[in-house]
Amino acid sequence: MQVSTFLWFDGRAEEAADHYTGVFDDSAVLDVQRAPDGRVMTVTFELAGQRYVAYNGGPEFTFTGAISLYAECDTQEEVDRVWANLTDGGKEGPGGSLTDRFGVTWQVMPKALGELLNAAGPDEAERILTALHAMTKIDVQRLIDARDQ
C-alpha cells in the first residue's frame, strides 16, 4: 500500500506538477493520465520522495488554508529559493506560510527552527516564536538574534 496526497485542480494539474517538480530537488513527474479526448486527467509526481496525485477535477472544490504542504529546508539559501519560487504569482502569509499561484498553502520552514526550539529554554522559545510570527519568509539569523536577546 502507498499513501499519497491527492490535490484537486481546476484544469491546472499538469502546470502545477511541472512547477513543483522544478522547485524541489529529487522530484519528477512520474505519470500523466489523459482522457480519450487528450485532456490531462491526473498527474502523478514526486517531490523529494513524497508522492502526489494532481487531478483536474473542475471548479467544484478549491484549496483552503485548513491543510497545507510543509517544506522543511536545510539552509537559509534553500528557504529563500523555495519561497521565491512558490510565492511567484502567489501570496505571502505570516510565519513562513504562503499560498502559491494554484491556491495551495505551504509552510516553508528552516530545519534550524526545530533545532533552536529544542535547545531553548522557555523564555528563549517565547522570543523565537514571537520573532517567527512577525515574519513572512523565515530568516534564521533573526530567530537566532531573538533567542539571544
Rank of each mutant, 00 (worst) to 15 (best):
L86Y: 05
L86H: 10
L86W: 09
L86Q: 07
L86G: 08
T87H: 14
T87W: 04
T87Y: 03
T87L: 12
G89A: 05
K91C: 12
K91H: 08
E92C: 13
E92D: 13
E92F: 09
G93H: 06
G93Y: 11
P94T: 05
G95K: 05
G95D: 12
G96K: 06
S97G: 11
T99P: 09
D100Q: 08
R101H: 07
R101G: 05
F102L: 15
V104D: 09
V104T: 09
T105S: 11
T105R: 10
W106R: 00
W106H: 01
Q107I: 10
Q107C: 13
V108P: 14
M109I: 14
M109C: 11
K111W: 03
K111P: 07
K111M: 14
A112D: 06
L113H: 04
L113E: 08
G114N: 11
E115Y: 01
E115F: 02
E115H: 00
L117I: 13
L117R: 04
N118E: 13
A119G: 05
A119S: 15
A119F: 00
A119T: 06
A120I: 03
A120Y: 04
G121Y: 03
G121P: 06
P122N: 09
P122I: 03
D123P: 02
E124A: 03
A125T: 00
A125P: 03
A125E: 07
A125M: 00
A125H: 01
E126D: 04
T130S: 02
T130R: 04
A131Q: 09
A131E: 10
A131L: 02
L132M: 15
A134T: 00
A134C: 03
M135R: 07
M135N: 03
